[in-house]
């Protein structure tokens, strides 16, 4: 299957943090991903755009272990094969994921949401006896300040506004201290002010040496991020480059942006 890329290339030499090569996924005959190849460098922020059904969410499912690819390679952090691991193992390797619909633990307080997400030993027997220590309390303070929810810390997450839930979820990702954050439509349903704040937040996160992959439809937001853009279409890469280059690509205009 790997006709394009020489499959003998030793993976450890790749400088990328995330390396997808020739990844295909089919659901009942529908090709959600079609020979998708993508590389994300350490510390890079990348925006992914594309029409509905282009395979953006499926790509995230493959990276986070929710979906097994039919063919292709998915390597992370010097050659770890993600296709053999489950969601929990991948999360513990340092890949955090924000869902399209904000998903937080609604019956827990805001600070507990962060606490439970903090990087640490996830084994049941350790967690059973775990007590919040000073380090953790400090990390929680830092993260809540970063995402602007310090004043809400003792509220139940279920009572937050839509935008606040989005930020809380980003805060939960930060708590995991992942090497790579996958962020699916972070500004869907946000006001303009919230959208702007979110762009700033993601830029700050990326500057703090996290790689970030953002899937987004909002072109103004993508422009505000000011990073390299990949446009997906029918499960593979249609165009890649700076936002101005990609948005002037005639194929991108045709399938996605519209004339």
């Amino acid at each position: 299957m790997n006709s394009v890329v020489d499959s003998d290339t030793p993976p450890p030499l790749t400088p990328s943090l995330l390396y997808l090569d020739g990844v295909s996924v089919s659901f009942d005959g529908f090709r959600a991903l079609n020979e998708l190849s993508l590389q994300i460098a350490p510390g890079e922020m990348r925006a992914i755009i594309g029409p509905n059904g282009a395979g953006k969410t499926t790509m995230m499912d493959v990276i986070t272990g929710k979906t097994r690819p039919d063919t292709g390679e998915v390597l992370f952090d010097r050659g770890i094969d993600l296709t053999r691991l489950d969601e929990a193992a991948i999360a513990n390797l340092g890949i955090g994921r924000k869902f399209q619909k904000p998903t937080v633990f609604e019956s827990h307080t805001v600070e507990d949401n962060i606490l439970l997400s903090l990087k640490g030993d996830r084994r049941a027997r350790t967690v059973l006896l775990a007590r919040t220590n000073a380090d953790e309390a400090q990390r929680i303070d830092e993260i809540l300040t970063t995402v602007g929810l310090a004043a809400q810390r003792t509220r139940l997450a279920g009572l937050l506004s839509h935008g606040q839930k989005q930020w809380l979820e980003i805060g939960m990702l930060l708590a995991q201290d992942p090497k790579l954050l996958l962020v699916d439509e972070p500004v869907a349903g946000m006001t303009d002010a919230e959208t702007e704040a979110t762009a700033e937040l993601l830029k700050r996160i990326s500057a703090a040496d996290h790689s970030v992959v953002v899937v987004e439809h909002d072109m103004a937001f993508v422009r505000a991020l000011g990073v390299k853009v990949t446009c997906l279409h029918e499960g593979s890469v249609l165009a890649e480059g700076a936002i101005d280059v990609v948005s002037e690509n005639p194929r991108v205009v045709e399938v996605y942006l519209g004339r």
């Binding site: 929710k66 969601e87 955090g96 507990d112 967690v127 059973l128």
Partner: peptide, 22 residues
Amino acid sequence: RLGKILVSIRDAESRTRFIGYR
């Protein structure tokens, strides 16, 4: 804290998985 994880599983199982809990 394990009890909190149980409630997390009850309310948002896949979220709990994606932050690394088995």
